[in-house]
């Protein structure tokens, strides 16, 4: 009796474990089955490299969106990584003990703020600010990058912090003992040892930035044209989906799901990089 129960439960546990594989397969099937036929109908090359997006006349080219997503993500990395990593260093080595806990709480709060709140905040504060400074409309790649840079800060801080913390103390102390300053020890003894962690933090940040939707759609301007400069508006892949999905039917809906396919492939590539780094470390 017990043996039967044991093996039945084992099967249940195994089934649950297989659920996540099932979920990934289901997501792939539904997204690809709805997206690929539309991409085929439009033409793979036309879809990926087309520069005109005009659903009303059935022209679907998402090249500007791909570029916009890449620009905005790169911008977020430029804005967010350095402060994030350096803040992690501060928390680990410089932070007065009394301040450490409030800082952690605050950073976790930043991580938990819903993206719609971020978007609203940026619309009210960052957009007018950029508009005043650069004498433009205020919405665009720069604004979106700034906002996303803020949004990925907690991810980068937390990952970098935990990896830096995992570096054995003797690296730091040994370097100090050789007469190096604290800063030199951090940057030249600890960083190389934690580089994979910092890198994986960046990759996670890229994942979050490229997938962010509700906040970006409010501040990026959403013009479906090639962005001319960092100040000009742009429409990211995610914004394209959320803007038009509720209206779309037929080929238009297919093209939007196709946009999700492209996004999905991007995320898969990012994940592969991430697990490759993790493997290398192990």
């Amino acid at each position: 009796m017990t043996r039967v129960k044991e093996s039945v439960m084992k099967c249940i546990f195994a089934l649950c474990a297989l659920m996540s594989i099932g979920a990934v397969i289901a997501i792939c099937v539904f997204i690809f089955a709805n997206g690929i036929p539309a991409i085929r109908e439009i033409g793979v090359w036309q879809f990926l490299s087309g520069r005109v997006w005009k659903p009303s006349v059935n022209i679907y080219g998402i090249f500007p969106m791909i570029i916009a997503s890449l620009y905005v993500t790169a911008g977020a990395i430029i804005v967010g990584v350095a402060p994030g990593v350096l803040t992690a260093v501060f928390l680990l080595k410089y932070c007065p003990a009394r301040l450490r806990k409030p800082m952690h709480t605050a950073i976790n709060l930043l991580a938990g703020i819903p993206s719609i709140v971020y978007g609203f905040f940026a619309l009210m504060v960052i957009v007018p600010l950029i508009g005043e400074v650069f004498y433009t409309g205020g919405k665009g790649i720069l604004t979106a990058s700034l906002l996303l840079g803020i949004m990925i800060l907690p991810t980068i801080i937390n990952t970098a912090y935990s990896f830096l913390k995992a570096v054995p103390d003797m690296y730091f102390e040994g370097s100090l003992a050789l007469g190096a300053t604290r800063e030199r020890s951090i940057f030249f003894a600890m960083f190389p040892a934690a580089s994979s962690g910092v890198l994986s933090g960046i990759i996670l940040g890229v994942g979050r930035a490229i997938g962010e939707t509700m906040a970006v759609v409010m501040v990026a301007g959403n013009q479906a044209v090639m962005p001319g400069s960092v100040l000009s508006g742009a429409r990211t892949l995610t914004a394209n989906i959320v803007l038009e999905m509720s209206y779309a039917a037929g080929l238009h809906r297919g093209a939007l799901v196709g946009t999700a396919v492209v996004l999905f492939v991007f995320i898969l590539i990012i994940n592969l990089c991430f697990s490759a780094i993790k493997q290398k470390k192990a």
């Binding site: 619309l123 409309g137 205020g138 959403n222 479906a224 044209v225």
Partner: peptide, 16 residues
């Protein structure tokens, strides 16, 4: 105009 900002929200329109 394809350089026009696009929004799906009246609130964003008014705020802009």
């Amino acid at each position: 105009y394809d350089g026009a900002e696009i929004t799906n929200s009246t609130s964003v329109m008014l705020t802009t």
